[in-house]
């Protein structure tokens, strides 16, 4: 799927970064505002898919040398692993903890283990969606 359109490529490069930023923002704001692991992950993966659509698969692969299957697997491990983390502290499986901390630059910030869990979810979504799209389009 090679599209030799300079304008499209240039625009896409900018758009991808906007989407990526938006995805991260969605992921981080998920706790208090709309967003979260799923949406963040989906938006991030759509950015990746756009990259693949606009550029050659090989080019992107050089730029992003990840195996997305492994990212997905890592995400699942992270999500399940945080569940076991609470077991180590004598809590029930998947119990999440949160607290407010005073950090130098950010001021009073809430930190929560749920972020780790959500990160696992997001990574899985990114990994799986990109894997699905990539494997199908590679099989031409």
């Amino acid at each position: 799927m090679r599209i030799n359109d300079v304008i499209l490529r240039t625009v896409a490069r900018i758009v991808v970064f906007i989407i990526l930023t938006f995805g991260v923002e969605l992921f981080l704001s998920g706790h208090n505002n709309p967003g979260g692991g799923f949406i963040g992950g989906l938006v991030l993966s759509s950015a990746f898919v756009l990259l693949y659509l606009v550029n050659d698969i090989e080019t992107v692969r050089k730029g992003i040398p990840f195996d997305f299957k492994k990212i997905a697997a890592f995400g699942v491990l992270l999500a399940v692993g945080t569940g076991f983390g609470s077991v180590l502290f004598g809590e029930h499986f998947l119990t999440q903890a949160f607290g407010h901390f005073h950090l130098p630059i950010f001021g009073i910030t809430e930190l929560s283990t749920v972020v780790l869990f959500e990160a696992g979810v997001a990574l899985t979504v990114v990994g799986v969606v990109v894997t699905i799209i990539l494997t199908i389009s590679e099989d031409v």
Binding site: N32, A79, F98, G99, V114, G127
Partner: peptide, 26 residues
């Protein structure tokens, strides 16, 4: 500790569902 109720349900109250869902997705 979250203000987005839907998200707290997903990540906290019913995290088991979400975890398994992630597994299904995988």
């Amino acid at each position: 500790g979250g203000k987005n109720i839907v998200n707290t349900i997903l990540g906290d109250f019913r995290a088991f569902d979400t975890m398994l869902e992630v597994v299904v997705l995988f």
